[in-house]
Amino acid sequence: MSVLNAEARSATTHLAADADEPAPVAVEVHGVHKWYGAHRVLDGIDLTVAAGEVTVVLGPSGSGKSTLLRVINHLEQPTLGHVSLGGEPIGVRWHRGRLRELSERQILTQRGRIGFVFQNFNLFPHLTVLENVAAAPVATGLQRRTEAEQSARELLDRVGLGEKADAYPRQLSGGQQQRVAIARALAQRPGVILFDEPTSALDPELVGEVLAVIKDLAAGGTTLVIVTHEIGFAREVADRVVFMDGGRIVEQGTPAEVLDRPRHPRTQEFLSRVL
């Protein structure tokens, strides 16, 4: 974490202070299975993330970490089981004791309450940084345009990119783009933010600035679920570490428990390879 970018570090101070920060929300994953044809990607996942808790998901590639995240915000529909957010099922509803699919419109509304940060940023290249951040609150009717742009500028200040508001994404470095993507996710005032390997596509010297921003979010009390390979970062920010392998949760606990005294041989093997 020594490579903390100056601008990112300066942004850290006001992150926790915001008054209208949305209340963090708990995430519950209930018996989720996911198959692609005959291929089993998730094999009975049960997981509870308490409101305000920071959970880091570790595991070898192909272990189902990313799919789990995508199931949580319903980019992927689980084959069996369901996810709920603050007690409300995502993408489905209870009807006469059965789970029924929601309309796409309802699902889109629910997704507005879940922030998602992609490995490859996926900023909209034809929109400026400011438009990227302000688009969703305007389009979903959360804020009026002027209001949304005002909040967007504040968010960009928070991630240390206030001066880049009128630039296009391709004019930014990878680390800056990812910080814009985080601001974009925050603009919807989500109760939980999911990070899918947010630093994997970055040059090593740009990783720090992004992790700094995430760390500040963690300090601010937002519920975070982070898939990452940064073990040191996990140790630093995680309330809980979940280790996945072969579509199952192999072991979970505090960072000290899982990272320093892993009980399961698969966890031990994985950690011995990455550390």
Binding site: N73, L75, E104, R105, L108, T109, Q110, R111, G112, R113, I114, F116, F118, N120, N122, L123, F124, A135, A136, A139, T140, R184, A185, Q188
Partner: peptide, 19 residues
């Protein structure tokens, strides 16, 4: 990724296509 990002932000379907 653009489709996914638009969907993940909960943008209305018409907006996703048009904008």
């Amino acid at each position: 990724g653009q489709h996914e990002a638009a969907a993940a932000l909960g943008l209305p379907r018409r907006y996703q296509f048009a904008r």
